[in-house]
Design a protein around this nucleic acid. Sequence first.
DNA 1: CTGTTAGCGCGTTCAC
DNA 2: GTGAACGCGCTAACAG
Lengths: 337, 337
Amino acid sequence: MRRLRANTQRVTITDVGAAAGVSPATVSRVLNGTAKVDAALADRVQAAVRTLGYRPNAAAQGLAKGRWGTIGVLVPDLANPYFPEILKAVSAVARANGHRVMIMESEENPAVEPELVADLLRSCDGLLLCSPRMPRDQLVDLADRGHPMVLVNRIVPGLAVPSISVDFYGGTTLICGHLAQLGHRDVAYLSGPESSWANGERIRALEAAAAFGLRLTVIPCGATAADGYTTADQIRRTGATAVVTYNDLVAQGTLSRLRELGIDVPTDLSVIGFDNLSLDWTGQATLTTVSMPRDQLGRQAATLLEHLMTGTPDTNPHLLPMQLRTHQTTAPPRHPI
Amino acid sequence: MRRLRANTQRVTITDVGAAAGVSPATVSRVLNGTAKVDAALADRVQAAVRTLGYRPNAAAQGLAKGRWGTIGVLVPDLANPYFPEILKAVSAVARANGHRVMIMESEENPAVEPELVADLLRSCDGLLLCSPRMPRDQLVDLADRGHPMVLVNRIVPGLAVPSISVDFYGGTTLICGHLAQLGHRDVAYLSGPESSWANGERIRALEAAAAFGLRLTVIPCGATAADGYTTADQIRRTGATAVVTYNDLVAQGTLSRLRELGIDVPTDLSVIGFDNLSLDWTGQATLTTVSMPRDQLGRQAATLLEHLMTGTPDTNPHLLPMQLRTHQTTAPPRHPI
DNA sequence: CTGTTAGCGCGTTCAC
DNA sequence: GTGAACGCGCTAACAG
């Protein structure tokens, strides 16, 4: 046999077979429990595996089995404190099921999502799409091609793909109720990414709250603390007595700028966040917000994917409830009506 | 040809070749730019690729080339706010070099690290080991087997492996200088994981500060806010007027408990963190700490690995400087000597 | 410049 | 129960 190129693999299944005095096929059988093997042989194989430090080559295995043993995860922003906990849960579930995890981030740029997804599909058995902003058509297209995938924090009506999300609508309704009961009538919403489904849900709920007498002004903003900081200046002229932000990061930025502007929270203005990102350990969890069960979200999402990949799809959309966390940034308006 | 099992791959290089009326080899050549190909043929290939939506199978490519196009990253805890930013930077660099990123976490359990590393090596071209607590021997062993890897936040003397770390020693010295100048003489250190090299560096520097008259008490603690919370009770009886924590998370937990105990910071006790995890956007970045350039750390680490994999190793240990961030948790001791 | 051929390491069918 | 042979999809050497 010619040795054309540098052999990247240190020890192969053939080496193990040779060392144990059996054929490669038998080694494979022992390692995968595919068929009954004589106990004595099996022992010799195990010994050889240990001695040589043999590890099956994942690429070769993948090629032969048509499976990679890997799941892919796409997130918009790794640095968003929103995701690490989710990834942690996903990682744990995946590992428990014998899967490795490949992670990519779109850097909040929806345009690159298709490319990243395609790239993930080249080496993954299934996909976890977190908050994808991809147009509905493309998602449908992906699903049609039969790629196992689970949608996280996006529900696409009429698409038979397992989906799980936090109940943003319900969470926003909790916020509205809280504000209404405090006596607020005019609220501003610092809106997140336009194309985000989760942002749309928040807005839907805020608009529905008109029934309770809440007047709404939507201010395009963004998803980061910096966005919240720069947009804060526009709040005052809306006449709002309370401001709801896309998430807690935006709220933090807003609070920071409000302080600079000399606007007191909550006396002059109530501020309410979204996601419960604030550290409870600061001993000063000041921001009123709604909490999101991130750990659960990650765990259940990964579980849905594992089920899907073993042929037990569950395409019912799952909705995780949020909870109101009342703290020091909300109070009755200065001049309640 | 027999079709033994379900064909997982929708469209192969052979399909593309057939559609374009060329051999698979030519398709490969066009896609990889391996050799000159007639322009007309190349166009037909490109067209076929687009039409069929062809994507090379990563496993097959990896097997044939002996490369996976993937780098592996091992971190102790994904949920630690310390890592997301690092991962983000790593991910960006890797992608820019045409590599995918596989991430595993040891859940702060050093015992599983070898297993995880072995698992990563089955499908990665190179490894980024973040804060590995692995015994020196095992690291040496890994290195000896010729696996490309870079050590992040751990320097192993005498090991010719590219390494990059924050200058914990220098950062701690900054802290000591700050405390000494404020007039502190007795400091307690809430220690991180025993086996952590970074923790050892902090202690080394704290001990060296004895030369400036600082008396040190080391209290075993941990790396989380919860650890800081439970350990805070032990500070008082050391007689320390200032406490240095393993990181900002621990500091937050400590602050929270101190407040409950009625110990005022910084009047009764100065508290100083490590890592600059506090969000600057809270508008109340109260914790005095030293900052760590996480983005730079991730970027340079990934770059070192890319260089290593292309055969340009740089085994000089790199040390990134920290900077003192003075805020509201440090002040002169109540009874300066 | 292009098609044919072999082999990457493994799982698996088929004979023994 | 076990080994030999083949193919997964792709790239690299070879021949034309």
